[in-house]
């Protein structure tokens, strides 16, 4: 892919775990690429598939959903529901040429600032490799 392509990544992160980890990564001054836009949700169980679809159609090249580890969800099972929804999108989006690598689900706990920074950096690099979303250049949304 072209050298100039800089991906835009949208991340839906739960308030209790991954957002806290993101905060920690920031306050610990870890080196992070500037491609990420964070959306704080109360729980990954709140991430309706349409948020992810809309993001990908509206300029995001990749979407990260990240919440508490299994067993740690503050609403008991929101992360398990999120897993089914991401699984569902994994089945739908590739049928239209949207690589399933563009939607990533991870569990990052509140104390895992390092893991958060690494997750995001890796994801950005992966998407940079993959290239821009087709929707970026389409007149149709």
């Amino acid at each position: 892919m072209s050298q100039e392509f800089e991906p835009t990544i949208l991340a839906f992160v739960c308030n209790w775990c991954t957002y806290t980890a993101a905060d920690l990564a920031g306050t610990s001054r870890m080196v992070q690429q500037p491609n990420l836009r964070l959306v704080r949700m109360m729980c990954t169980g709140m991430v309706d598939p349409k948020y992810i679809v809309k993001s990908l159609l509206s300029g995001a090249d990749g979407v990260l959903v990240s919440g508490c580890h299994p067993g740690d969800c503050h609403y008991i099972n929101g992360n398990y529901k999120a897993r089914r929804r991401v699984k569902l999108l994994n089945e739908i989006l590739p049928q239209f040429g949207i690589e399933k690598e563009r939607v990533k689900l991870t569990w990052v706990g509140a104390s895992e600032g390092n893991e958060f920074a690494a997750t995001v950096n890796n994801f950005i690099n992966e998407i940079r490799e993959l290239g821009p979303m087709e929707a970026r250049s389409m007149a149709v949304v």
Binding site: P70, Y80, L105, T106, N114, E115, T119
Partner: peptide, 15 residues
């Protein structure tokens, strides 16, 4: 519904 132990391949473990 969901099961606790399913679709593990859907989750990425980065580090």
């Amino acid at each position: 519904v969901f099961k606790e132990d399913e679709f593990q391949e859907t989750v990425s473990h980065m580090v």
